[in-house]
Design a protein around this nucleic acid. Structure first.
Lengths: 211, 211
DNA sequence: GCCGAAGGTGAGCGCTCGCTTAGTGTGCCG
DNA sequence: CGGCACACTAAGCGAGCGCTCACCTTCGGC
C-alpha cells in the first residue's frame, strides 16, 4: 500500500513521499516541534523557522497548522499499520508472528520516537473529521494484533482469558514506549523490542521464544 | 504523610486538603479543563468560568496558570505514591503485593482518569524546578515497584531477567490506562485492575493468583 | 527576450492570550 | 456604627498568536 520503499531493516524515513521538497522540510520541522512542545504550544513561526523559511511560506503548502498535524498523523498511522500487517501476515507460528509484531512495533516507537509521540498523543488536537479518519486506522491496528492473538488461542498456543483486554494491553504497552523512551537512555530500540516481545509472550501464556 | 483520610475502598477525592473553598473549586475546574483539552489549549478564562468566577479571581489564589498545574501534579503524584507504598508495605507474598499494587494503581488511573491524565501527560508544561520536583517523586514510584519485583526474584517466586526493564514496563502499562480508559467503555476500573494484575504476574513469571 | 506560473517574503490584521489594576461588596472587630 | 481586611469583579494592557496580502524572484517555454 505504501509507496515508500523498504530498507533491509524495515525502518524507513517515510517523509520521502511528501513533495515538493519545501513541503517535506516543513513537515519534518513540524514533527520535531510538535514532539518537543506539543501541538498547541508550537507556533507556526517556530515551524517555519526550523525549516528555514518565513512564516507565510507555510501557508503555500498547507492550509492550516492543523492540516500539518493531520498529514503527520495519517502518514504515521499508515506506517504503524504497515509494520503490524507485515508481521501479522508473515510465515510462522502465532508466537513467532506476535513476537515479531511487538518487536518491530516497539522498535518504531522507540527509534522514531518524535514521530510516534506526535502520532499517538496529539490525536485530540485534530478536528472531528480528521480525528474520525485516524480512529478508523487505529481500529485496523487493533484488529491486526487481535487477529494474531485469536489465532494463537485457536491453535492452543496461547492461554488468554480476555482476548480483547489482552490485545488492548499489548498495544498500550507498545505505544507508551513513545512517552518514556529516551535516546540518551541505557537501552537501544532493538533491546526494548526484544524485552517487550518476551514480556508479551508471557502475557499471552506462550512459552518464551528460544530460536 | 498525606493528611487526606482514607475511605474504605482506598479511593479519595484528594482535593479536600486544598483550602479555601474557592481555591479548591478553581483547582478542580483546572483538572477537568487540562484533562479535556491539555494544558496549553486551556485558557485561564475557561478555568475561572468553570469555577463560576471571573478570570481575575484565579490570580487571588494562584500566582500563575502554571502554579495550578504544579499543585495538581504534586497532589496527584503524592496520591499515586501513597497507593503504591500502601500495597508494597502490606503483608503477604511478593506476588500478592505486586498484584495489589497493580490493581490499586490501575484502579486509580481508570477511576480518576481526568486527574491521572493531567498528572501523567502534562509534565513537560512545567518549568524546570517544578519538573525536577515531580521527577523525584516519579523515581520513588519506580523504586516502590522495583522493590517488590526484587523481593519476588530473591524469594524465587519471580522469573525476571531484567528487573529494571520489567519494572519500567509494568509502570508503563499501568500509566497508559489513563490515556485509553473510557468511562463509557465496557470495563469498570475494578475489572481493568484485575485483568492487569493477572497480566503483570504473568510478565514476572509468577503463577496466576488463584485465591 | 518576454511571460506566466510557482514559490517565496515583509509587513501587518484581527483576535485572544496570561495577567494587572482600580474599584466594589461584605462581614468582623472595636 | 465606623473602619478595614478580604474576596471578588469589570475593564483592559501588552504581547504573541494563526493567518493574509501585496509584492518580489526565479525559471522553463516560445
Amino acid at each position: 500500500m505504501s509507496t515508500a520503499q523498504e530498507t533491509t531493516g524495515g525502518e524507513v524515513e517515510p517523509w520521502e513521499q511528501v513533495t515538493p521538497d519545501a513541503a517535506r522540510r516543513l513537515l519534518v520541522a513540524a514533527v520535531e516541534a510538535f514532539a518537543e512542545r506539543g501541538y498547541h504550544a508550537t507556533t507556526t513561526r517556530d515551524i517555519a523557522g526550523r525549516a528555514g523559511m518565513s512564516p507565510a511560506a507555510l501557508y503555500i503548502h498547507y492550509k492550516t497548522k492543523e492540516e500539518l498535524l493531520h498529514r503527520i498523523s495519517r502518514i504515521g498511522h499508515d506506517r504503524a499499520l504497515d509494520i503490524l500487517r507485515t508481521a501479522a501476515r508473515a510465515e510462522g507460528s502465532p508466537s513467532e508472528r506476535l513476537a515479531e509484531a511487538v518487536r518491530s512495533f516497539v522498535r518504531w516507537h522507540a527509534g522514531r520516537r518524535t514521530t510516534a509521540r506526535v502520532v499517538q498523543y496529539e490525536l485530540d488536537a485534530l478536528g472531528p473529521d480528521a480525528r474520525a479518519e485516524i480512529l478508523a486506522l487505529r481500529r485496523q491496528v487493533d484488529a491486526e494484533v487481535r487477529g494474531i492473538v485469536e489465532e494463537g488461542v485457536a491453535a492452543g498456543d496461547f492461554d488468554v482469558p480476555d482476548v480483547q483486554g489482552s490485545t488492548l494491553a499489548i498495544l498500550s504497552l507498545c505505544i507508551d514506549v513513545a512517552r518514556w523512551f529516551n535516546v540518551e537512555g541505557p537501552r537501544t530500540p532493538d533491546e526494548v523490542g526484544a524485552l517487550y516481545a518476551d514480556l508479551v509472550l508471557r502475557m499471552v501464556g506462550a512459552a518464551p521464544a528460544t530460536p
